[in-house]
Design a protein around this nucleic acid. Structure first.
Lengths: 215, 215
DNA sequence: GCAGTGACTGTACGCATGTACAGTATTATG
DNA sequence: CATAATACTGTACATGCGTACAGTCACTGC
């Protein structure tokens, strides 16, 4: 029998997961290699031995998080369509905080997370087209732009999860059951809308005029 | 006649503005006092002389940005209602990048920006109530929550402005004229909605059941 | 004119950082 | 069992950091 505290991940994986957790909690710039090593229970030198530099470690974290997210999304896609594009990624305790990591690194703009965002949008375009086809979603004049806006709103709410928690008592990075105080008004907004049609027409025409005048 | 390059701000103001710009560009943790001093054209020691510590400087920046934003919002409120809650804050060149500063510091969670967000939501609740009264906005079952969600979506889109720029070719921190590629699909979404009423009913009932079971 | 006050700089100190390096333990390979 | 390779640590070093301090300059009030 193995002790309860045994950790059968390789040291490399432990370092990576500790880095993800620290980066997620404090941001990359405010996290030291030493604190990561301490969290992983290894020496700082081993971090460098396995990853070379802090920046390379961060890139490895980016790739790992992106890979896990892709995997989860794929698994979720087979289970059928979902309203919430982040549902499959909600965090289990005792596993690296993927969503919190994303929330932190979305602002720093590495190529890896940019590519991930692009994928999320592309997937959204695709499954929203299916939804429109089957009558589950209303059609749009700008399907790609609409998917991009919705994805950014979802991710933006994730990035601001601390504010949402304070405002509504909802933790978007936690289990789905805790998100209803956000999901309910959001769904209402996305069902009945906010603006009367007349306003949209006016905005559309005004923006159209701007476009022509601008070029 | 004064030379073109003259800068009649006090050194204190120049330091503060330089700090806002650097914090906005690189984040607080990745910005050194020395780089701020260089940008302001003063010695690092003067930064400390005026503000005491880097953290105190950052707090002063928070307060300044919050004060300017409140002032702008007040001025905008007198000019009548606005669709875009951030419209009054769009950046002029040659002035500190308020919105970019906000976009960076919204994630770090200081009390000052939290209070500012709370104010933005409170204001939104208020002027959306007026909008509903006058028929400009549709009513809601959850007016406060709706205002919070919309505010968070706006701010979230701001925080992710680099991604939006890449996805749609829109700079949310720039002049309003460049934002139409975002504003158009967003307005469409907030007019016609995304989901048929039946889905909302189902979500509402499911979330209601969750609430009862959860407590 | 002169003391006083605040703006401002140069220098320096202590500390934390990222990481290189030499060396030891552990494991894999013949 | 011997050898090679890899995992891992302790130590050390250069760098950059925040900031304290002593001192200079410019201006104000008497």
């Amino acid at each position: 029998m193995r002790t309860v505290t045994a950790d059968d991940r390789t040291a490399r994986a432990r370092i990576r997961d500790a880095a993800i957790a620290r980066f997620a909690a404090d941001g990359v710039a405010a996290t030291s290699v030493r604190s990561i090593a301490e969290n992983a229970g290894v020496s700082p030198a081993l971090v460098i031995h396995h990853f070379g530099t802090k920046e390379a470690l961060r890139a490895a974290c980016d790739r790992h998080v992106a890979a896990v997210i892709r995997e989860r999304k794929l698994a979720a896609a087979e289970a059928g369509p979902q309203l919430d594009p982040l549902a499959a990624l909600r965090e289990h305790p005792d596993e690296p905080p993927l969503l919190r990591y994303l929330a932190r690194t979305l602002v720093d703009g590495t190529a890896e997370v940019a590519a991930l965002v692009d994928e999320l949008v592309a997937d959204a375009v695709e499954y929203m087209a299916v939804g429109v086809e089957s009558g589950m979603l209303k059609p749009s004049d700008h399907p790609r732009e609409r998917a991009a806006v919705l994805t950014v709103w979802s991710l933006g709410a994730l990035v601001l999860h601390e504010h949402l928690d304070r405002l509504l008592g909802t933790d978007l990075t936690g289990p789905a059951s805790g998100t209803f105080r956000y999901a309910l008004p959001a769904t209402e907004l996305l069902t009945y809308g906010l603006l009367p049609e007349e306003i949209y027409m006016r905005v559309r025409d005004a923006l159209g005029a701007l476009t022509e005048a601008g070029s």
